[in-house]
Design a protein around this nucleic acid. Structure first.
Lengths: 199, 199
DNA sequence: TACTCTACTTACTCGCGCGTAAGTTTACGG
DNA sequence: CCGTAAACTTACGCGCGAGTAAGTAGAGTA
């Protein structure tokens, strides 16, 4: 009696993904320290020792979240770029995909961007992930302005601009232009290429 | 005997500032949760109950840090602007002062920007502080481009760009252009006004 | 000199949350 | 159909850190 047929035994690979899903959810809402392993386990619909058995300590679990979500983001943003695209179009497409990703994976984005920057031992980990996709950005910018000796500061500025816009879209979902991230991406691309539209 | 003459009794207002200094230091290195009240008290050179007596609970202490550092930042960035300045110059000066502030008050900046975004009950507090100076930015931008109906997204993008550049300067102090935040500010201003320098 | 208010301390309590020991059930390969 | 390995649980120990009780000492005031 009281046997719930929907709760089955599942293979490890499946459970691991469920646990990571739960961990990302909980970490995104509470941050690393305020999140408890008990709550993560409960959210995953499993008991706590299973989490330790599969994903290790809380610290290892958080890093696993970081890696999965970071990989997903990089994948989503740069997979759409092909080398024969004009670099201005690459730029616009990358910004589009970035904004789309954040809107569609708010929890993952929160974990990557808001919850553990500046707190060792995660700060280094996150900085490295961020540097990797800023590196991609640098390549794109260098193609647009081959005469500029070092586009690195431009890439950092651009990355920050996109991140901040993403947060804005998430914070005011109804207010942002036409409710369309792609339009916002186009506007930002235009701003970067041409500057503020004066006169 | 063993009376240390350097350790005197100090009036409350002085001690409070020392405690806030210590709290900002410790919170900036460890984040809200990993920081302990014991360590903050020790850093301030005082015993823990004094912290509770003067600044209240850990949560209240953190919020006090947020308010003090936020006020300092806003003060530093916008006090230099006068209404008769051309708006392009206001923009450049504001960016300069922002970058200077971050370089000179890294701990305060870390507390404001890295350590508690996304973690209630601080997320709202921080978002509000940030919105307030993005509001100032909006005003400046609106003067530069009076034809644009809503410069809000531009202000968010710009704010993110400046924040990200500030982090970059702090992360690679030797690599950034001419080691001079003012030069970086000028470059960013130029980028915003004119776009990427193509051809 | 006594009175008192403020600055300051030592020495606790107590709950929460990480991590684990030890045991139980289901699937599945032989 | 049986053994064994993988999936899964309950029920803890134990340390750390927020917050406090209860008291001491010095500095201004009458």
């Amino acid at each position: 009696m009281s046997v719930d047929p929907t709760v089955k035994r599942l293979p490890r690979a499946v459970r691991e993904q469920q646990m990571l899903d739960a961990a990302v959810r909980v970490f995104s809402r509470l941050g690393y320290h305020a999140a408890s392993m008990d709550e993560i386990a409960e959210t995953a619909g499993i008991s706590k020792p299973m989490v330790y058995a599969y994903l290790g300590t809380k610290e290892e679990l958080f890093i696993a979240c970081l890696h999965r979500e970071g990989a997903r983001l990089t994948e989503a943003v740069f997979a759409v770029l092909s080398d024969d695209m004009p670099p201005e179009q690459q730029l616009r497409r990358a910004i589009e995909e970035f904004l789309q990703f954040v809107v569609n994976h708010r929890d993952g984005w929160s974990v990557l961007h808001r919850q553990a920057r500046g707190q060792e031992p995660f700060a280094g980990e996150i900085a490295e992930i961020r540097r990797s996709w800023i590196g991609h950005l640098t390549t794109v910018l260098a193609r647009i302005t081959p005469d500029v000796p070092d586009v690195t500061p431009g890439a950092y500025a651009l990355a920050g601009a996109v991140e901040s816009l993403a947060d804005w879209i998430v914070e005011f979902p109804d207010r942002h232009v036409g409710r369309d991230p792609d339009l916002t991406a186009a506007r930002l691309t235009d701003l970067i290429l041409n500057g503020l539209p004066r006169q």
